[in-house]
Design a binder for these strands. Structure first.
Lengths: 215, 215, 215, 215
DNA sequence: GATGAATGAGTGTTCATTCAT
DNA sequence: GATGAATGAACACTCATTCAT
């Protein structure tokens, strides 16, 4: 059994009181706003503290350094996005494969829409540190089981191979991410959604065909 | 007190002498090395000048500012990658669609391999400035005509729609980029290549099918 | 890459604590000393901070930029000089016109004596920015009413015309300034004072005569 | 007899050939243009050389350093102004004192009008170096004899005292200079000219009266 | 003589972080 | 716990000046 790599202590202290929790929330919200408004360039600890209405000293009481703040924000935003996607998928009405894929795609596009500059900056910073893996992990495992999620019991696909999970998840995320970052006007259009669905469906169908179990 | 009328020129002077050309090359090479070794964080004008073996003043004789240097590097790296891909594609022996796609995929993976951190940093910085479009433009137009490149004359596809070009190019690039950035061990494996080919082929086939011209 | 959204505020923060006020005073005093010792050429933010015994960061905590520091110093020096002149004038014993003019002239010469290089540099810098009007404003309005200040109630002059105020104030200031700048040995002599008084008195008398109300 | 203080060598070489003289002229003209367009801040040796159409090396062939260039320019501009004033005075028609003073005043205002920014910058720089005396010397001696210039033979005044010359010249110059530097709209108005004339005339008359020789 | 590529000390300014109060 | 004044290393960038060609 692999030893869990202990991540370096992120928080200086665990907030035990209601007030402390509020303070942390205020700081994170301020960080997101600053990021949204001015990008990574405007993201300074002093600016965040000021907007949060706390002193710079207080900020450092809860976050060891600037990076810890960024990481905490990244985790918060990512998990929010994942929850949204998960909810969309579990509540899908039509059980047809394509309907479920479409629901997922729509949820992802939606999740990446609001506060796009903040998310973009966070993603950028995270990637720059090579921590992308940690953050994308949940999405990864989610797509790994896409076969079972999609197919009816009879034609259920076996779990995808490592490379297949990788290619599918990164291709999908990559296309959405690029649309967000380049601020493409068609980001929320039906046509774009259609093509994303086509991307996923055709890939899965190809795998299913090769496995002798066409959907 | 630091405000100056600054004409919007990119290069400060066009190198007319052999020595100057060498200097520019040295600076660009140094920039790539610094980026490769330490990422965007280590990319300071002073560090680049020092590694290039020139004074900081000389660096500024050829690049208006730090950003211009980054842009110049980006253009250089991008065009190098594109040339590699183009060559691979034009020189493909087997005219079968899948062979050609495979050649392209292989060239792209190859192109993105060496000096990955430098390329990563460059790409990151470019995207952060919203200049992604300019840099990715050539790749875009390349994929836009993929239909005609791939199909036999009889079944030649019409040019892809804007959203289709976008989704296909970004999905493919996104998957490769992620593999590079996350330093995935399978980056150059046959399995990974196979899946990338599958991604492209299944997508194109799906379009062809919808257009009533199956490959 | 050095571009930032900068709100147009002059002071970065209003000093709320005693220590802060001391720091600001120390910086201003240091600035005056540096200017006095080496003129505008020696006036660098680093030099000022060092002489003030604070870090460069502290200096920037109280002054947005070098210019703001210069402006603050200018305001301080100017108002000090004006207060001196005002005091001299209000406290004059002899109400005879010439006595009052002499008191004013003496106060101005006195005010411009100490720390002449500092004042000179400050004035120079202010003028270079076209802010001369703002700084000289108080002196202007002071001289504008010189007629009423000087004359007995019966012969009180009407307010001077714009051009008259200008010529009289600039002529007087110009002569004093030149004596200071050229370090004329007679700066504080009685003879020099006499001639300045003559300059003002003869000008005013000429105006009074034209207005039909000889003093 | 006082030993003439040998001014530090200004020119590196005395231009002996026509071409060299042209080059020097071009550089000085370029310097004036740069100064006029962008003030002292834009006045860099490289900018001057470029506008003059010569290499920076050539500029340094004729001027030891930046300061020498500035000084040369100052001398040129000053003497041009003086010549203008002298011409105006010698060619005056009406011999009445006030007419002659008016001619002089008008010439001075005129001389300081064109290329005001350049002159302003030059004056500023000169003063900052404490070389004001050298430059204003000619003007000084000009005003010293104003008495004899003005009065008819019978009432000719004796030469003014040192302090009187100083006060009159500096007062007049100061008023004009201030109007130029503050870019006063009335600079060329008749009203302004009238007041300058009044300033000079009333001062001279006062002296004449004290000397028992009213004009 | 002329050129212009190269130099590098020096400037203004930022911002993450500390610590005395 | 909270504050915010103070710190100072680090950075981008300028420009007068030199000197090999």
């Amino acid at each position: 059994m692999a030893i869990k790599r202990q991540l370096p202590e992120i928080k200086r202290r665990i907030p035990r009181q209601a007030r402390a929790a509020e303070t942390v929330a205020a700081i994170l919200e301020a960080a997101a706003q600053i990021l949204e408004a001015g990008g990574l360039a405007a993201f300074t600890t002093n600016a965040v503290a000021e907007r949060a209405g706390v002193s710079i000293g207080t900020l450092y009481q809860y976050f060891v350094d600037k990076n810890a703040l960024l990481l905490a924000l990244a985790r918060q935003e990512m998990s929010a996005a994942l929850i949204e996607v998960g909810r969309a998928l579990s509540g899908a009405g039509d059980p047809a494969p394509e309907s479920r894929v479409r629901a997922m795609v729509r949820a992802m596009v939606h999740a990446f829409r609001g506060r796009s500059r903040a998310r973009k900056a966070v993603v950028q910073a995270i990637l720059a540190q090579g921590l992308g893996f940690e953050m994308i992990g949940p999405i990864n495992s989610f797509i790994a089981n896409i076969g079972s999620v999609i197919g009816p019991d009879a034609t259920r696909l076996p779990p995808l191979a490592r490379e297949q999970v990788f290619v599918l998840s990164r291709a999908l995320l990559g296309a959405i991410r690029a649309a967000v970052m380049e601020e493409q006007p068609f980001l929320q259009s039906r046509a774009f959604e259609d093509e994303l669905v086509r991307l996923v469906m055709s890939y899965i169908e190809s795998i299913a065909r090769d496995a002798g179990r066409p959907l």
